Computed example of a mutant assay.
Amino acid sequence: MAASTRVTSPLLDVLEVFLSAWQDDDRGVHGWAIMKETKRSGPTVYGVLDRIETAEWITGEWDPDSAPGRPRRRLYRLTPNGRIEAARLIAERRPAASGIHAVLTRLGLSRWSPAFGGGSR
């Protein structure tokens, strides 16, 4: 995602869901779960998913365990670069976010410049 890309509350909400899912054994999440967790509408969530998938922060794949007779679900996961960029944005914009320090530590990014809420690199 380009540095000039506008950072919105829906973007940050969606990224928080992905970071939480990554902490929880890197489980994939589908759009409906993200909508439920963020309390955001489908067009809003899927607009964010399109943006971050285009930026290669997430990958999507069809859920092989979709229930028969039900619509298939697309599962999304953060890419390695997406994890880093999502953690940086959340640390910068929502430093009090629950669990962000654990995410930063797990990524090896617990020591950052002050702009990202940490010490020197």
Rank of each mutant, 00 (worst) to 15 (best):
M1G: 15
M1E: 12
S4H: 11
S4D: 15
T5G: 05
T5F: 10
R6G: 07
T8A: 05
P10E: 03
L11Y: 02
E16M: 12
L19I: 03
S20Y: 04
A21D: 11
A21V: 02
A21F: 04
A21E: 12
W22I: 00
W22E: 12
D24H: 11
D25C: 10
R27A: 08
G28L: 10
H30M: 01
A33L: 11
A33C: 05
I34W: 07
M35V: 01
M35H: 05
E37T: 12
E37H: 04
R40F: 01
S41C: 04
S41H: 06
G42A: 08
P43S: 02
T44W: 02
T44V: 14
V48A: 02
I52G: 02
I52L: 02
E53P: 00
A55Q: 13
E56S: 14
I58A: 06
G60W: 04
E61S: 13
E61F: 08
W62R: 07
W62E: 15
W62G: 00
D63K: 00
R70H: 12
R70P: 00
R70I: 00
P71N: 13
P71C: 05
P71A: 13
R72H: 13
R72D: 15
R74P: 06
R74F: 03
L75K: 04
Y76N: 12
R77N: 08
L78K: 03
L78M: 13
P80K: 05
N81G: 10
R83S: 09
I84K: 13
A86I: 04
L89T: 05
I90E: 12
A91Y: 04
A91I: 02
R93M: 02
R93D: 01
A96Y: 05
A97M: 07
S98D: 15
S98P: 09
G99T: 06
A102S: 08
A102Q: 12
R106V: 02
G108H: 04
G108R: 02
L109I: 00
L109V: 00
R111H: 12
R111Y: 03
S113Q: 13
P114Q: 07
A115T: 15
A115D: 15
G117R: 03
G117D: 06
G117Y: 05
S120N: 10
